[in-house]
Write a protein that binds this DNA or RNA. Structure first.
Lengths: 197, 197
DNA sequence: GTCTATATTGTGATAGAC
DNA sequence: GTCTATCACAATATAGAC
């Protein structure tokens, strides 16, 4: 076999990084930065402990990278909601389900974990604070007001209600950790009563 | 001053134990067993690091003791609810508030923390499993059925609805950790919509 | 009974063999 | 590029001074 050219090596490098990030996301989301040992991430990624440090210079750096990814992902989810089909209620249900689904779930869990902990790196704290200031929940306010006018959502301050609703969703994510299959996704309608008329 | 007699020494011993337990409960509830260093507990209790080990032979033992206390406390709360005055709805609101209130809060948070983590000692796991099997939520089922018949609570499987409701409550406790004052206690009525008609 | 000093263990991070 | 072996340091737990 011919030796790999530069581009192929780059490709491999990126794949490895993704592999480690994916593994780390899952473990960090469940156990937090302190509860996560580098050995766990390496095991989850199927590589040796030391190799992780060829791709990320520290546990902190890896963690911060993932926080950045997660915040971007969260924002993107909120932005996309307006382009979904259906009534405000249907849009909200879709958004909820996509949050509870697949790997998106881990991003939201990570944010939740990190926000509720004071042992995160300073840089991560700053990012999270910035995020909560310009909280992308605000992007949903027009949609929510539409829903209120249509009589689908209950009366009250839209931001507060949305904030409460999503706190419940993300709060529940962190609990059903042991039972790894998705319990709450079947109970979306129960949860939505909080914001419904 | 006369030297202390045996009983007084015992008394002092118990006070110290309570002091350490109280401090440890608060820290464990917020940070979990791994995230909690013995130095934090000692600092919170206002004693030296080493002294903790005169009263508890390990961090694990201290943790397990607190889990036991918490599970008993949780059960007691659920048992007392039937003796409270008022309609089922009022009883449920009182119970919710007492869960979110004062030191009771930390017991429920601790259970939540521990249940969602797999880094707890084996003994604690067993206790928690036992607890979830004979979950004291079951004690509330007759009350809930009363409420359903009075038209206060929504239709549906009582156990499932109660389980969902309390998952939300305890899930939210763990979040508003930074803002140490009690936010959700003001939003009880919003949360109760989940179980209401 | 309590503290400070220290032994021991576990974890983050690096270096060197392959 | 990857692994194993190792260093350095932090945390648990113990021992000894007061």
């Amino acid at each position: 076999m011919a030796p790999l050219n530069e581009q192929q090596l780059d490709q491999l490098h990126i794949q490895r990084i993704d592999q480690i990030k994916k593994a780390a996301l899952k473990v960090f989301a469940h156990r937090g930065i302190i509860g996560t040992k580098m050995s766990m991430i390496a095991a989850e990624a199927g590589i040796s402990q030391g190799l992780s440090y060829r791709y990320f210079k520290s546990k902190e750096e890896l963690f911060i990278t993932l926080i950045q990814d997660a915040l971007e992902e969260a924002k993107a989810s909120m932005e996309q909601v307006n382009h979904l089909p259906g009534t405000p209620l249907e849009k909200m249900r879709r958004l909820t389900k996509s949050m509870l689904d697949g790997s998106n779930k881990y991003f939201f869990m990570l944010i939740q974990q990190a926000a509720g902990s004071d042992e995160v790196p300073e840089k991560a704290k700053q990012l999270l604070e910035q995020f909560s200031k310009e909280n992308p929940i605000q992007l949903l306010i027009p949609l929510f007001i539409d829903g209120q006018e249509m009589g689908q959502f209950c009366e009250g301050d839209p931001y507060k209600l949305l904030f409460c609703y999503f706190s419940i969703i993300t709060g529940l994510m962190l609990q059903e950790v042991q039972a790894d299959d998705n319990y709450w996704i079947h109970e979306v309608d129960l949860l939505m009563k909080v914001i419904m008329k």
